[in-house]
Amino acid sequence: MEKEFDRQVDRKGTASQKWEKYADRDILPMWVADTDFQAPPAVIQALHERIEHGIFGYTNVPGQLNQLIQARMQRLYDWQIEQDWLIWLPGLVCGLNLACRAVGETGDTVLSPKPIYPPFMSSPRLSGREVCTVPLRQNGDHFVLDLAALEASITGNTRLLLFCNPHNPGGAVYRREELEQLAELILKHDLYLCSDEIHCDLILEPGLQHIPIASLGADIRARTITLMAPSKTYNIAGLGCSFAIISDPQLRKQFIDVKKGIVPDVNLLGYTATEAAYRDGDEWNRQQLDYLRGNRDYLHREINQIPGLKLLPVEATYLAWIDVSGAKLSNPAHFFEQAGVGMSPGRDFGDNHYMRLNFGCPRETLEEAVRRIKVALSNELPA
């Protein structure tokens, strides 16, 4: 299977957002969070079979898909959910926006730790809310929530906290104790929580396990909108399928009400791929995780040998949050693009001292990216 992940698949000329950004330039695209791996064979086969049917009309949720999600939540997290808690969406970002609209009123404040995935900062503003970001705290080699700073930032207008676990871009997997403390804060201040858990199937560090915060108990569950999707895990983001889990009937109604007439249904190929991925893709993902661990370990070793750069251990995701502050670059994104490596600029996540590199690619590509970074910085930094 490892050879499958080593395969170089040419994505040029396929309208790939990732690859078109640097079309006709010798820049390796290692920015947006999709991998360069082909989807699991079971997913591709299911799509072929559905396409051969030849009719692509309006589509309901496939009959067994909700039960598949229920069984998955029970098996992986000992979390019993009901079918009517599930709301299917054509993408996770729209779920963040819907959450901001569903909770509170215009002018209220949405709280979020940072650095964070950019839609966490844009969704509140697009929803007529104010956004307040609170920096994460580094504890040894692990990013953690600064609960004291979060609590100090809560005002009478704060209604919602946006949360990301595993964390994008830092790659942290939050521990049970951290989640319990966050839940206590939410309940103490009568807040709601939207938890983006899209990277939950991409835990790289042995011994760590994803814990949905809503699974901790009935009180926090009633105040939580959980967002999940197969898109990152199985590289099917272009098929647009994700889901929210909302147990509280009133919160669920508010979420559905702001969705009506604006957010379209999931398309049938998205449902088809999701069902196949969750039913038959676990072994494929185990192989992918082994490969990604190898990439992570290689990258961690190499980056930390380059003067001016630092990379903390990546516990989850295929995203490396690289501290470039030691290189003292005036425009890090431009510098690395000139070096032939296109990463996501840290300023988009709230911290210009970092760059985010996507290592979900064949090892050969990653090695070439590291080589280019080394050459560029060896020419930039004094001997």
Rank of each mutant, 00 (worst) to 15 (best):
Ala327Tyr: 06
Lys310Arg: 15
Gly340Lys: 03
Gly340Cys: 07
Gly340Thr: 12
Phe335Gly: 01
Arg347Gly: 00
Leu311Gly: 11
Ser325Cys: 02
Arg356Val: 15
Ile322Ser: 03
Asp348Ala: 11
Ser325Lys: 10
Gln338Glu: 15
Tyr354Glu: 01
Arg356Phe: 00
Thr317Pro: 06
Val314Gln: 15
Asp351Ala: 14
Ala316Met: 00
Phe349Cys: 09
Asn352Val: 00
Pro313Leu: 07
Leu309Thr: 10
Leu312Lys: 04
Ala339Thr: 11
Asp323Leu: 01
Tyr354Ser: 01
Gly350Met: 05
Leu329Asn: 05
Val341Ile: 12
Thr317Glu: 07
Val324Pro: 02
Ala339Asp: 04
Ala320Asn: 09
Arg347Phe: 11
Arg356Asp: 08
Leu312Gly: 00
Ala327Asp: 07
Leu312Tyr: 13
Pro345Gln: 08
Glu315Pro: 00
Ala333Phe: 14
Lys310Trp: 06
Tyr318Asp: 10
Glu337Asn: 15
Ile322Glu: 03
Val314Lys: 13
Ala316Val: 02
Lys328Thr: 11
Val314Pro: 01
Leu312Asn: 06
Pro345Tyr: 08
His334Asn: 10
Pro345Met: 09
Leu311Arg: 07
Ile322Cys: 03
Lys328Cys: 12
Gly350Leu: 04
Gly340Asn: 06
Tyr318Val: 06
Gly326Ile: 02
Ser325Gly: 02
Pro313Ile: 04
Pro332Lys: 06
Asp323Gln: 03
Leu309Arg: 08
Gly340Ala: 07
Asp323Met: 01
Gly346Val: 10
Arg356Pro: 08
Ala320Glu: 07
Pro332Asn: 08
Gly326Ser: 07
Leu329Glu: 06
Leu319Trp: 12
His334Val: 13
Leu312Asp: 03
Ser325Tyr: 02
Glu315Ala: 13
Ala327Arg: 06
Lys328Asp: 14
Phe335Tyr: 12
Leu319Lys: 02
Ser330Glu: 15
Val341Ser: 06
Asn331Glu: 14
Phe336Lys: 03
Pro345Asp: 11
Pro332Val: 11
Asp351Phe: 10
Met355Lys: 02
Tyr354Arg: 01
Leu311Ala: 10
Gly340Ile: 08
Ser330Gly: 12
Lys310Ile: 00
Pro332His: 09
Thr317His: 06
Ala320Trp: 09
Phe336Ala: 03
Asn352Arg: 10
Phe335Pro: 01
Pro313Asp: 10
Gly342Ile: 10
Phe336Gly: 02
Ala333Pro: 05
Asp323Ser: 05
Gly346Leu: 09
Val341Leu: 06
Val341Trp: 04
Trp321Cys: 14
Trp321Met: 10
Phe349Gln: 08
Asn331Ile: 11
Arg347Ile: 11
Tyr354Phe: 15
Val341Pro: 08
Thr317Val: 03
Glu337Met: 13
Leu309Asn: 12
Trp321Ser: 12
